[in-house]
């Protein structure tokens, strides 16, 4: 009879179980944003990713949040994440000291179509922290600058003090052929630049609409207006790419939180070509 009592089936590896990584350094970017640099405990394991992909980053005992990778795809030994302090997890991450252990799962999700931009004008439109998921694209375009046509970064943020990666942006602008248009919601005494929403920059930005691939990342309302301006200029919907954001608890299409109609944003997104998600952009509270 003993043969009848076969043991049950054992478990396969669980995608919900993270690995541990070590915080190398944290840098404050602006008043409420910061960048973390993470490495494997052995210091050599690489974490290859594609621009636009995200990791589930966790503070032990607090929780896990999806954060896009903001680093250079060519330096995969260091995982770079830039985020805002907006909740329990990001606040806890901000408090961690160098050497602290974090949890990491990923990379997950779809990528910005950098390869497809070859021979085209490239227009990045970022709102606030939305610049962080686009920074890997900037690194990639800069590395192979000659492959692309005009390269524009249109960036809107709250105030001059909230400009992310300010030094890097001005260095890129001076060293490479990159058109950078920045606008702020509220200027200051010393601000000589644009004031107003970033979407207003689209109309007069120097790019050839029919030859342009655009990537848009920011609050949903900003993306909606940016897409409208791009379409008004004549950029085709399949050439406009957006990065969508929803609550995520798993990152692997199991927890259900990130669903937007038929999409699991963690699996089929976060980066979509606009024509695929256009109908979803029109409905409130979807």
């Amino acid at each position: 009879m003993a043969s009848l009592l076969e043991p049950g089936v054992a478990l396969r590896p669980d995608p919900m179980v993270p690995r541990l990584v070590t915080l190398e350094r944290t840098r404050a970017e602006t008043a409420d944003t910061f960048t973390m640099e993470l490495v494997a405990p052995d210091g050599v394991t690489e974490f290859p990713f594609l621009p636009g992909q995200f990791n589930m980053v966790g503070a032990l005992g607090v929780g896990e949040v999806p954060i896009s990778v903001s680093g250079d795809p060519q330096t995969p030994r260091t995982i770079v994440h830039t985020t805002r302090e907006v909740g329990a997890v990001t606040n806890a991450l901000k408090q961690l000291r160098p050497g602290a252990a974090l949890t990491l799962r990923g990379p997950y999700g779809t990528a910005w179509p950098v390869e497809a931009c070859s021979g085209h004008d490239v227009v990045l439109i970022a709102g606030g922290i939305g610049l962080a998921p686009l920074r890997p694209v900037i690194y990639e375009v800069m590395r192979q600058r000659a492959r692309f046509g005009r390269f524009l970064v249109l960036y809107g943020t709250r105030s001059p003090e909230d400009i992310l990666f300010a030094k890097e942006l001005s260095r890129w602008r001076s060293q490479f052929d990159m058109e950078l248009l920045v606008t702020v919601d509220r200027g200051t005494e010393h601000w000589r630049g644009n004031v107003g929403v970033v979407t207003k920059l689209v109309a007069r930005a120097p790019f050839e609409p029919r030859e342009t691939v655009a990537m848009v990342c920011g609050p949903e309302v900003m993306m909606r207006f940016a897409v409208a301006e791009l379409r008004a200029r004549g950029v085709a919907e399949p050439n406009i790419h957006v990065s969508l954001e929803r609550n995520m608890k798993c990152g692997v299409g199991l927890c259900g939180h990130c669903q937007l109609r038929g999409e699991f944003i963690c699996r089929s997104g976060p980066v979509y070509s606009y024509d695929r998600v256009a109908p979803l952009f029109e409905v409130r509270e979807l």
């Binding site: 049950g8 993270p18 690995r19 541990l20």
Partner: peptide, 23 residues
């Protein structure tokens, strides 16, 4: 339960819950 992280001194270890569900 999905996993447990255990800290012993400076070391942290993650143990997955791989208890098979009962027959």
């Amino acid at each position: 339960s999905l996993w447990t992280a255990i800290r012993i001194g400076p070391q942290v270890r993650i143990e997955a819950n791989d208890d098979p569900p009962p027959k």
